[in-house]
Simulated scan of single mutants.
Amino acid sequence: MKIDPLFILTALLSLIKALPTTLIITVVSVSIGLILGSTVALIRIYRIPVLHRIAAAYVMFIRGTPMLMHLLLIYFGLPMLIDGISGTWGLPFHSNQIPLIGFVLISFSLTAGAYMSEVVRAGILAVNRGQIEAAYSVGMTTAQALRRIVLPQALSVCLPNLSNSLIGMLHASTLAFTVSVVDINAQAQIVAATNWKFLESYIAAALLFWGMTVLIERATSRLEKRINNYNRGGVA
């Protein structure tokens, strides 16, 4: 068996067509997940009645079950729920109006939210409590203390783990093909199936993922330096 280097280049050019789908899945899921995770983290830190128990149960369930399971539960369960509600209330909206990528985004966002909530919570708790008390002493509200003092420092602590979460979601986006969403992984299988050159196709996909991972790592490194300079009072 011989590897065909020329076909690796051909496959790589074909896989680029699926790159926007992979990036949309990654960026949207991580963005929504960060917002959801930050909200859950604050709910748990400040122990908001009732909500903090729901938040803790959500994090425990998501972290205790596989990501593929979340995708399948959303893919098969959400249509039943939507169609059931639509049938009961006579609503015109039905699950077949949701694009396949919509199920992926919902599932992956929920997964990202649970994991990022722990990252954000750890970052906030790492900030010295005395700084928050000092903010209160000068008349700041909790929201002002979080925005001006806690979150900038917490972001510096969280950034490496947030970067890992972004890279992890990028790689996990390959699960989208299980519900017929054509991402890079699915496109690699399509290209390979037409020529029976599976090894070359997967090498091309691996190179593409590796390149994006390197870009994320370098961007994170530069951002971390800027945040550290800002927190030290230097020029960002």
Rank of each mutant, 00 (worst) to 15 (best):
I3E: 07
I3R: 10
F7L: 09
F7Q: 04
L9M: 10
T10L: 06
L12Y: 14
L13A: 12
K17F: 11
A18W: 00
T21Y: 09
T21N: 11
T22L: 01
L23N: 00
I24T: 12
I24G: 02
T26I: 07
V27W: 08
G33Q: 06
G33M: 06
I35T: 14
S38T: 15
T39M: 13
V40S: 00
L42D: 04
R47S: 11
R47H: 09
R47A: 12
L51F: 15
H52Y: 15
H52S: 15
I54P: 03
F61C: 09
G64L: 04
T65E: 05
T65V: 13
M67I: 11
I74M: 09
Y75T: 06
I82L: 14
D83I: 07
D83Q: 10
I85H: 07
S86I: 10
G90C: 08
P92L: 07
N96F: 15
I101G: 03
I101V: 15
F103A: 03
V104E: 02
I106G: 01
S107V: 03
L110K: 02
T111F: 15
A114R: 03
M116K: 04
S117H: 02
S117D: 04
V120M: 13
A122M: 01
I124N: 02
G130Q: 09
G130R: 08
A135Q: 04
Y136T: 01
M140H: 01
T142N: 09
Q144W: 00
P152W: 05
S156I: 08
V157K: 10
P160T: 13
N161I: 05
L162Y: 02
L166R: 00
G168W: 03
S180L: 14
V181K: 01
I184H: 01
N185F: 14
A186L: 14
A192V: 10
A193E: 13
N195H: 15
K197G: 10
I203G: 05
A204G: 07
A204R: 00
A204L: 08
L208C: 05
F209H: 07
T213P: 02
V214L: 15
L215T: 12
I216N: 04
A219T: 13
A219L: 14
A219R: 06
T220G: 11
T220C: 12
K225G: 07
R226G: 05
N228Y: 07
N229A: 14
N231H: 06
N231W: 09
G233I: 05
V235C: 09
